[in-house]
């Protein structure tokens, strides 16, 4: 029993702490997302070239950011799990996977919806689009792999290794538009120079990115809380069954 308590000590602390933070995270995410998207959809100006199709970026860019950022988080959890055997990292990696995959799919779909009228095609096999599609397959592979084993521990281990291998795709996505000629345009928001987006479009975009990020965090935390409680329920039921036997 002492061992059981010790094993749950850390997740228990997580449940208390996250339970307090989650409402603020969720409300801030919802409010900022609504403000960013509402501003982008109804008040931001149309682009001089793209017309109103530019409004798709208020979804496309946050989704792309979370696709990469979420994968970075997944890889970080995998590192924590492989090296330090952190008790929450495995569960976190499993819960980030589907949400990140959803963001990647949304990024690809909205990009396609923008590309059809703007470029004249739904899809091209250029380096940016292809590396983003590879990221979707990495997510899907992780989702499948962590559930493919009878023993969850082995699934976590295999998923963590896949996630760390896939990290090489992140710099490829980021720099694909600089290393190679791509149809996709280069980054408009950089850390090294002024953004090339008009301020009346940049603000709703930044707010939308922040709102999506907080919403992503809220959904992952809520899923992780559920996963921790499910694991604790399973552990208690198992212990009870063993006591009875």
């Amino acid at each position: 029993m002492a061992i059981t308590l010790h094993r749950f000590a850390n997740p228990g602390q997580f449940l208390r702490l996250s339970g307090r933070i989650l409402p603020y995270l969720a409300v801030a995410g919802v409010v900022l997302t609504l403000v960013g998207l509402g501003w982008g959809l109804f008040f931001a100006p149309a682009d001089y070239q793209q017309g109103d199709a530019v409004r798709i970026i208020y979804i496309h860019v946050p989704a792309a950011w979370l696709a990469s950022g979420g994968y970075f988080g997944l890889a970080l959890c995998s590192l924590l799990s492989l090296v330090w055997r952190h008790p929450l990292a495995d569960l976190a990696a499993v819960e980030i996977g589907p949400v990140g995959a959803g963001c990647t799919a949304l990024c690809l779909a909205t990009g396609s919806l923008w590309g059809r009228p703007m470029w004249g095609t739904w899809w091209v096999w250029d380096a940016r689009l292809t590396s983003m599609l590879v990221l979707l397959f990495l997510y899907l592979g992780h989702i499948a792999l962590v559930r493919a084993f009878d023993s969850p521990e082995r699934g976590y281990r295999a998923g963590a290794i896949l996630a760390l291998i896939g990290v090489v795709d992140l710099p490829v996505i980021k720099f694909s538009v600089e290393w190679w000629n791509t149809l996709h345009q280069p980054a408009s928001i950089k850390f090294t120079s002024a953004p090339t987006v008009f301020s009346g479009m940049l603000w709703p975009l930044l707010i939308s990115i922040l709102g999506f990020s907080l919403g992503f965090a809220a959904i992952v935390v809520a899923r992780l809380r559920a996963a921790v409680m499910e694991r604790r329920t399973r552990g208690l039921l198992l212990a009870r069954a063993q006591e009875a036997a």
Partner: peptide
């Protein structure tokens, strides 16, 4: 096949 390539600047017409 001809595809338009957009650059990274976004601004209103004005």
């Amino acid at each position: 096949e001809v595809l338009a390539k957009h650059d990274e600047t976004y601004m209103p017409k004005e």
